[in-house]
Design a protein around this nucleic acid. Structure first.
Lengths: 204, 204
DNA sequence: GTCTATATTCAGATAGAC
DNA sequence: GTCTATCTGAATATAGAC
């Protein structure tokens, strides 16, 4: 019915070989897949919908990526976060900088993973691993014996804020500027990354 | 094949009328539905699996609840949280008490809703409404002009911690005691519910 | 009150034509 | 390189038997 993208471009330099054409189509499918997965999650995102938005046939998607599961794996592959390291008293600032970046623009691949983390085992595994990875880095710098819990909490807080803003679009979080948010969270993350000596245990 | 639960109990007091029998079966289905929904989320939880675990026929589930959608609505209906009110300087403690309760044992109905909040529109709506409801209560007590963002952050933090513990089961969060967690989060929530006058804006 | 049997819909995957 | 046509499986929902 509709004309597909399968005509070879005939530009003056007779470029775009069949291989190029294929790479382009493949890339277009992947980009659309990221977008659809991030919006609907793994189960509700259908190959058919992705193919339709990418203006190709459903069969072609499978032909390139093998299965929906493998397409999802490709679409959610991300480069690990910048390592958090340096002197302990700067860990909080680094976490805030990382959060600021996530609030400004989280890559679609990451959002696709986060969207499915509660209902798709592979996605859950990916998120757990990413957080574990960050936990290991930070825990090294903290001397406290409850370092693991402290870093887990910084991860949970970051997760809650990112999910609340980008996926749930909570009132007040959706519109606020990244600066406003990180400023308000500074005391939180500082208290969690401070060594126990500096933070006398509370009353009770 | 397997004997269903449809024999009337013939006890000495000739109790359990057909109506009673029905109520029991209905309640059993609902309890199982909560459990399955909370574990797999809306899409991957099937009527068939619920019926099987409840030892009834799939048709019966539909017969009682009309549709999967309505069964889910029933299964995720929750009583609203205890109201957060009182003097502003106690808001943080009340939030911590509420969090402590959620960490100790979150009702299965709530977990069922949370599990699906990122992939099922109705569940997302339910979570947003619950958070909005709490936001309104707390914002009243805060004088700050950024009260809405502050309360959104307390909600996001609570959400992140509860999800991280019960649904993602993050290392360090899964095992920690509720007291340990709330103690570490006390400075966080206090800083967010403190009025700006008491919390001088940071450097930079 | 509960079950059997089935209609219907839909999505992932396959085979082969163009 | 991309599409058409189809197979297969699974799940919700319905109708009526027992």
């Amino acid at each position: 019915m509709q004309r597909p993208y399968n005509e070879r471009m005939v530009d003056s330099a007779h470029r775009t070989s069949r291989a190029d054409q294929r790479r382009q189509t493949e890339a277009r499918i992947l980009a659309v897949a990221r977008q659809v997965f991030s919006e609907y999650g793994y189960d509700r995102a259908t190959i058919r919908a992705i193919a339709s938005k990418a203006k190709v046939n459903p069969g072609l998607v499978i032909h390139y990526y093998g299965s929906k599961e493998r397409l999802f794996a490709e679409a959610t592959r991300t480069t690990p976060d910048e390592p958090i390291a340096g002197p302990p008293d700067q860990v909080a600032e680094q976490l805030l900088a990382a959060l600021h970046a996530k609030l400004t623009e989280e890559p679609t691949a990451t959002l696709a993973m986060l969207r499915s983390m509660l209902t798709h085992p592979e996605a859950a595994h990916g998120v757990r691993e990413a957080l574990r990875h960050q936990q290991r880095q930070i825990s090294l710098g903290l001397s406290a014996d409850d370092a693991l819990l402290r870093t887990a909490l910084t991860g949970a807080i970051t997760l809650g804020v990112v999910v609340g803003r980008h996926l749930l679009q909570l009132d007040g979080l959706r519109d606020a500027s990244p600066e406003q948010i990180t400023d308000l969270l500074r005391p939180c993350l500082e208290s969690l990354t401070r060594s126990p000596a500096e933070e006398p245990s509370a009353e009770r």
